[in-house]
Amino acid sequence: MGKLDGRVVIITGAARGQGEQEARLFAAEGARVLLGDVLDGPGKALAEELGDDRARYVHLDVGREADWAAAVRAAGEAFGTVDGLVNNAGILRYNELAATPLAEFQQVVRVNQVGAFLGMKAVVPELTAAGGGTIVNTASYAALSGMAYLTAYAASKAAVVGMTRVAAMELAGRGIRVNAVCPGAIDTPMTRPERVAADGGPAAPDADLEAFYGRLVPLGRIGRPEEVARLALFLSCADSSYITGQPFVIDGGWLSGTGIH
């Protein structure tokens, strides 16, 4: 038996990185997953690989309320219900505070913060009707500790932690648990934009990320997206049945203090 047998979970940003690994792991654990993303090619390919009985893909711009309504409707039509959400979609932009254009700040907030808000808002009626469920929001190490050049990103992720706590308080009586994962440095296309030619993001940092985080992080390496997926699974299954309203840091010990190796 899988840890998510009989569950239907919407996963955003599911075409690659953490979202892709979450989709693969959740499906392997028995869930039926609705994959949402704006990267239609990779998203459709992943859904086809997982199979129609296990996964469907929808184009989902998390900053558009109409897209959320369509995604929830698609999940219901395909699988009959919704009883889980992983708000994984996010973007990262590096910039100094004084040099950050308002449009760039608003773009990051729209995806990371507004997207999480709209996702929770969209699924609450479905989770309530199902008799309960789980929401896992993706925050960040940067939500809990300052980091230079990440004003917009850190602000949006700190807001996700705040919304997670409030939602957990409001929804506990409906049997809905809400938690957040707070990854540190994870080896994904978002942290390595040079790997995605069409990403449109800023140039990658010059330093080799593996070597950089190998020196900085106590565990001596950058994290892997499948490790974050396992934490999201824990928070989405009965193993975490008495946990809600909490931010879970997964950062190789980075928040505890930096250790130069």
Rank of each mutant, 00 (worst) to 15 (best):
V124P: 03
A130K: 06
G119E: 09
Q106D: 13
V114Y: 09
V124H: 04
E126N: 14
Q113E: 14
V124F: 06
A103S: 14
L118P: 04
Q113N: 15
G115V: 05
P101I: 08
G133C: 04
G115Q: 06
T100M: 07
Q113C: 14
V114N: 11
R110H: 12
A130Y: 09
P125F: 09
V123A: 00
R110K: 13
T134C: 13
V123T: 01
L102I: 10
G133T: 05
Q113P: 15
E104S: 12
I135Q: 02
F117K: 09
T100A: 04
V136D: 05
N137R: 00
A129Q: 10
V123Y: 04
L127E: 02
F105T: 06
V114G: 11
A129W: 08
T134Y: 11
V108C: 01
L127V: 03
T100Y: 03
A99W: 10
F105M: 06
Q106C: 14
G115L: 03
L127K: 07
V114K: 11
F105K: 04
P101Y: 08
Q106H: 13
G132M: 01
N137K: 02
Q113I: 14
A129C: 10
Q113D: 14
V111G: 03
E104A: 09
T100F: 08
G115M: 07
A122T: 07
V114C: 13
E104D: 14
A122N: 07
T134L: 08
L127G: 00
V124G: 01
A130T: 08
V109G: 03
L127W: 01
V108S: 01
F117C: 11
N137F: 00
Q106I: 12
G115T: 03
V111R: 02
G119C: 09
A129I: 08
F105V: 07
T100K: 04
V124E: 02
P101H: 10
V124Y: 06
A103Y: 09
V123Q: 03
N137T: 03
G133K: 04
V123W: 05
N112I: 06
G132R: 05
T134I: 11
G119H: 09
V136S: 06
P125G: 12
V108W: 01
L118A: 04
P101A: 07
V136T: 06
Q107G: 12
G119T: 05
V111K: 00
I135W: 00
A116K: 10
V109D: 02
Q106Y: 12
V136I: 07
N112V: 05
V123I: 07
G131M: 05
V114H: 09
V109Q: 05
A130W: 07
E126Y: 12
Q107D: 13
A99G: 14
G119D: 02
P101T: 10
